[in-house]
Simulated scan of single mutants.
Amino acid sequence: MIITKIVVEKFDRNVNFGIWQLKMKVIQDGVDLALQGVKNILDDMSKEDLAVSWKASLQPVVALSTTEAEYMTMIETLAWLATHARVIGLDLLGKGLEGVLSPSVSGLDKLSFLNLSLSSFRGPIPPELFHVKLLAVIDLSNNHLLGEMPPGIGNLSSLSLLDISNNRFTGMIPDVFHGLTKLEVFSAESIGFVGRLPTSLSSCSMLTSLYLWNNSLNGSIDLDFGRLLRLTVLNLGWNRLHGLIPESLSSCKALQILNLNRNNLSGLVPQKLRNLRSLSFLALEQNNLSNISNALAVLQGCHNLTVKNEEMPTNGIRGFGSLRALSMANCGFRGSMPLWLRKCRELRAINLAWNLFSGEIPSWFEGFDHLFVMDLSNNSFYGEIPISLMQLKS
């Protein structure tokens, strides 16, 4: 018997007996089986057999406290399945489960898919989890897991997705990614990791998405992007990274989203970044980059760039024909509105609020057929509001 996935759907409490009954869906050989199907799979176990008391003595997959009795039914059923079936997928997304992950989870040695996200698991990740060699997907995001990330993650050569975001880990990201050649997505956002970027991530040639936003990572961006040619998303914003934007980023021709905001990066935007023709989102604000005019001249080669959130000069720029959203709020700009904006006819939204712009609001917005949001508040514009603004189609 091959159980490809177990999805817990609902818990029902029987108030009369003070016990909890489990409703679950088992997917066997690609076919969904509801509660009756589970009964048949479990050697004709009765519904009452599934609704066992929390005092039962079966070894749980999750170590429970006395406040977690309601989850014992699920744990005991899973323990039975681990013994009598080949469970290769376990989806407990958003079921509100609590507890400490137990080393006995390694008993599911055929497991390839594990989703425990959006729950309340706490404590450290047991190192035994990384003994399950067939794991390809691990999603532990949005829990209360603690401690350091076990280096055993480097043993999972089949891993394609690892999401541990929104937990309470400490320490550094272990530099153990050399053997994870199948890894496509790594997400570790809003955790508090410190130290340098693990350079072994450069070995993950299949990597498409790297999310390390909102940590305390420092040092330079020492990744060999020439080996990460499939990368489409790189989010390193809200860290403490410093040094230059690496020129090797230009090798990532498939890159669509690049977020480096709120770091301590310095120097110029590399000329070769003009080769990122697929780039559609770029955030560089609140760094120490210099020569913004040069940066914009470079970025004009990125023809799909639709979002730019960074200080801009008022002349020397031809315009961005594909620009759809422009936010330059609270950037300290002075002078009149830049003339190159009149060439950005694809704009949907523009925010120039809280600057020091002055002069009259230009009348050339009449050709902006897609524009539906405009915020020019808290500046020093004067004169009448152009009639053309009242005639915008959107």
Rank of each mutant, 00 (worst) to 15 (best):
L258I: 03
S322H: 00
E346I: 00
N235L: 08
L145K: 01
R227N: 14
L265K: 13
E70C: 03
P127N: 03
R277E: 11
M45A: 10
I88Y: 02
K308W: 11
S394E: 15
Q300D: 04
A56V: 11
L108M: 11
N261C: 10
L33N: 00
S280F: 11
D43L: 04
G316T: 08
E9P: 01
V176W: 03
R324S: 11
F186I: 09
N291S: 15
W54F: 11
E128V: 02
E76Y: 14
P127H: 01
L135F: 09
R274D: 14
E285L: 10
L135G: 01
F113P: 00
R240F: 11
V7K: 03
S160W: 14
G179P: 00
F357G: 01
P338D: 07
N287W: 04
E48K: 06
L352F: 15
K308I: 13
N304M: 09
A34H: 14
L296K: 01
L111T: 06
D44F: 07
F169N: 04
L241K: 05
L212Y: 04
S251E: 09
V105P: 00
G30V: 06
L183F: 09
G316C: 08
I173E: 00
L223N: 04
M328A: 09
S165C: 08
S158P: 01
L101W: 02
A82N: 12
I385T: 09
F121D: 00
K10G: 07
E189A: 12
M72R: 15
F177D: 00
S200R: 02
L323M: 08
G179S: 12
L180S: 06
L229Q: 14
V100C: 06
I19N: 11
W80N: 03
D175S: 10
L244I: 04
E70I: 01
L234T: 12
A295R: 06
I75H: 13
S216A: 07
G383H: 05
S141E: 11
G192F: 10
L217N: 06
D44N: 11
N167T: 06
G18S: 13
M374N: 03
S57L: 13
N259T: 06
E247M: 07
S293G: 07
N142Q: 10
G367N: 14
S205Q: 12
D43K: 05
G154V: 03
Y382V: 06
Q59N: 12
L114Q: 02
H178G: 09
S336T: 10
D91H: 15
E285N: 12
S53E: 06
L228E: 13
L352P: 02
K253Y: 05
L207F: 15
S202D: 14
S57R: 05
A254V: 05
E9F: 10
S190H: 11
D163K: 15
T83S: 11
V8A: 12
S293C: 05
D139P: 07
F381D: 01
H144D: 09
M328C: 09
N288R: 15
S200T: 12
G96E: 12
D222C: 08
P127T: 03
N167H: 08
G319S: 07
